[in-house]
Amino acid sequence: MSLLSLNNVHSHYGHIHALKGISLDVNKGEIVTLIGSNGAGKSTTLRTISGMMHPTSGSITLNGVDISKMDPHAIVLAGLGHVPEGRGIFPKLTVKENLEMGAFTVTDRQAVEERMEYGFTLFPRLKERVSQYGGTLSGGEQQMLAIARGLMLNPSILMLDEPSMGLAPVLVELIFDIIKTLNEKGTTVLLVEQNALMALSIAHRGYVLQTGEIVVNDSAANLKMNPLVQKAYLGMD
């Protein structure tokens, strides 16, 4: 059975029908990517999964539990980590406090310490900045912090929304390397990305979203060869 499963999910912003029957599955140990252009509904899909908005119909299950009507904080407890678009760093909390916020629901102090250390081994730069305010970090450092913070809960699935946004190419590669490493160590990842080439280079499978609907669903290798994907998202003719 898949770890995360969306079944015919519809979502609305007021009268705007943003998701028109999305069905997708993420299995344990996979990296699954959602690609699509601006406004296709990628972030809306993640926001609907994490409970920041509720689906108008359809079901979402995580570890077999229906989470479609839960509040965000309860879904976090069910095992979902969400690194939001724009990173969502708390600007006036220090790096350490930001990480502690990520483990807000964890009562085992030793586990918190260990996970923080793990975050520092992934991103040594964060350790140097541990007592700096989140708002003073560069964009790349904020993205590192957002990912490290997302891992503080030891989530069964980590959702990343546009981790490459606004970053220099060298940092994009670093971030994607880390995502790959995390996955190899057992973290399941659902990745939303505009940089389709990067996303498909590390993902196992992918879904292509167009105006709120999934139009293609295939393995990453096949998607790279798919003429529609090549034309629309990889810039090839």
Binding site: D71, P72, H73, L77, P84, L93, M101, R149
Partner: peptide
């Protein structure tokens, strides 16, 4: 700390498991 987090970014705070 949770109060400050909610003050700074309510939506992200909810993603941290804060009610």
């Amino acid at each position: 700390k949770a109060i400050r987090a909610v003050a700074q970014d309510r939506h992200t705070a909810s993603l941290m498991g804060i009610n």
